[in-house]
């Protein structure tokens, strides 16, 4: 959809002008820190936290949102990572990360869409015209969103910036993720035990061809099918016991 009929509307002004930051907002942000790998400072720094809380509430419904947040809170208290969430919660966690990273609510797994009995089409939509430039994906690779926050004449001639290591990122988020009860364990965040030292991302986690331009980014196929599941296989899912 590109007619952008609601593009002129500014972001819903949900922020709390001259009010203390609300407790639900603080909780939402705090719980999103380990999911995204960005600190509470960075999440607040997008200016989108209130909008994303509203968006998630609208997309899932208040009850499902609260269920998700409390289960994720509980999982953390038990020392679990996001990759260890049950399937439905895991898919919601992915949608939330996608929202923070791109500014858009994604198309989610149809099974979860059905299970939640959502009252809206299962498609991708931009949260607002102001959310796209605040996507964290651009910061993840040290870049800037296409069409916003331009870096200046000729900067593209410089080498790309050095990115923080996984350990540095983990360190930076522990300050705001006070509920984490165990040291950072990559496998709790989806790292495949047999690929821990790999420099490359396995193809099933990369995008394949965008078969037409009308396919929204969240619906682009994978570059490869996932590896066969079986004993000791990388795709073995701890939560599916």
């Amino acid at each position: 959809m590109t007619d952008g009929t609601n593009a002129g509307a500014a972001a819903p002004n949900a922020d709390t002008h001259l009010e203390a930051p609300s407790a639900p907002l603080e909780r939402f942000v705090r719980l999103c820190v380990p999911l995204t790998g960005f600190s509470a400072f960075d999440l607040h720094g997008t200016g989108m936290a209130p909008l994303y809380l509203d968006t998630t509430r609208r997309e899932l419904g208040e009850g499902h949102l609260e269920n998700f947040l409390s289960r994720w809170e509980q999982a953390q208290a038990e020392g679990k990572g996001p990759a260890e969430l049950p399937p439905t919660e895991r898919e919601i966690a992915r949608a939330l990360v996608y929202l923070w990273y791109t500014g858009a609510w994604p198309r989610i797994a149809p099974a979860v869409h059905a299970e939640l009995r959502r009252d809206r089409p299962n498609g991708e939509s931009m949260a607002s015209a102001t959310s796209y430039p605040e996507g964290l994906v651009w910061r993840a690779f040290g870049g800037h969103p296409g069409g916003a926050k331009p870096p200046g004449f000729g900067t593209w001639s410089y080498p790309p910036p050095t990115l923080p290591t996984e350990a540095e990122i983990a360190e930076s988020i522990t300050q705001s993720a006070a509920t984490a009860t165990r040291p950072y364990d990559p496998t709790a965040y989806g790292a495949l035990a047999n690929l821990l030292d790999e420099e490359s991302v396995p193809p099933h986690l990369l995008p394949g061809a965008c078969v037409t331009r009308s396919v929204p980014p969240s619906a682009v196929p994978c570059a490869a099918p996932p590896p066969e599941t079986g004993s000791g296989s990388p795709a073995k899912d701890v939560s599916e016991r």
């Binding site: 203390a20 930051p21 720094g45 997008t46 870096p151 200046g152 004449f153």
Partner: peptide
Amino acid sequence: MHHVVPLMVELRDASQRLYRNP
């Protein structure tokens, strides 16, 4: 002077992140 603009941009992004934090 062409190094000034990227620094200005860094200040822009860093300051906006600060303002948005309680």
